[in-house]
């Protein structure tokens, strides 16, 4: 990832229409945009990310903020595009609580641990985060993956900073309690982690 002051020059160039400047912005932010959208819209993430960048490209000329403001701006576009996509589909995300419980019921912790060893990758992590209630998932993604501070994430989400902070915390709690994550703890192979018990329920 790029530091903000490196990006600042590219941002300025991109605002003036420079393609290389835009390419640098894209390389720096596309992964986070894509991952965020993966959690919000699933398989449509690539398409929605493209729409996001196109809209950004069209509106970039008028942009006059710094890099942090640009991040917020870009993720707001991504979020709105994502919500549009969800509306288009007219389909709601599955109810997260049930899905966690279902999956937990289906797979005993030990087996999950074996699975986890094979599947520890970004896509898997995003899938897991996507099982959170949407506002928690978004908060976690914006804070952790996009690297936005609380205030910026709150701006993107149109919520108050305190709300976002709590949503992040709850999301992390929920993830930490997920048997698959706990199994990972064991799989991470740090001795005492064997103490993980298959206790269920919140």
């Amino acid at each position: 990832m790029f530091e903000d002051d490196e990006l600042a020059a590219s941002l300025k160039m991109a605002v003036a229409g420079d393609e290389e400047g835009f390419a640098v912005l894209w390389r720096s932010l596309q992964p986070a945009v894509l991952r965020y959208l993966r959690v919000v819209v699933g398989d449509a993430a690539e398409d929605v990310a493209s729409e996001t960048w196109l809209q950004a490209a069209r509106d970039l000329r008028g942009f006059d903020g710094g890099v942090p403001a640009f991040r917020v701006w870009l993720f707001r576009i991504a979020r709105h595009r994502g919500i549009d996509e969800l509306r288009r589909r007219g389909r709601r995300r599955e109810e997260p609580t049930e899905s966690i419980e279902e999956q937990a019921a289906q797979s005993p912790v030990r087996d999950v641990a074996a699975e986890v060893l094979e599947e520890m990758d970004t896509a898997w992590a995003l899938e897991l985060i996507a099982t959170l209630p949407q506002h928690q998932a978004e908060a976690v993604m914006l804070r952790v993956v996009a690297g936005l501070d609380v205030g910026s994430a709150a701006e993107v989400l149109g919520k108050r900073a305190g709300t976002v902070r709590v949503a992040t915390m709850r999301g992390l709690r929920r993830l930490a309690a997920d048997p698959r994550v706990r199994a990972w703890e064991g799989a991470a192979g740090t001795g005492s982690a064997a103490a993980v018990s298959p206790a269920e329920g919140m």
């Binding site: 990832m1 992964p31 991952r35 990758d121 898997w124 992590a125 952790v144």
Partner: peptide, 17 residues
Amino acid sequence: PDCRGLGALLNVAKAPA
């Protein structure tokens, strides 16, 4: 120690592109 799994998950979620 209790958050190691979560820490690993988050690290993977923000792994390099």
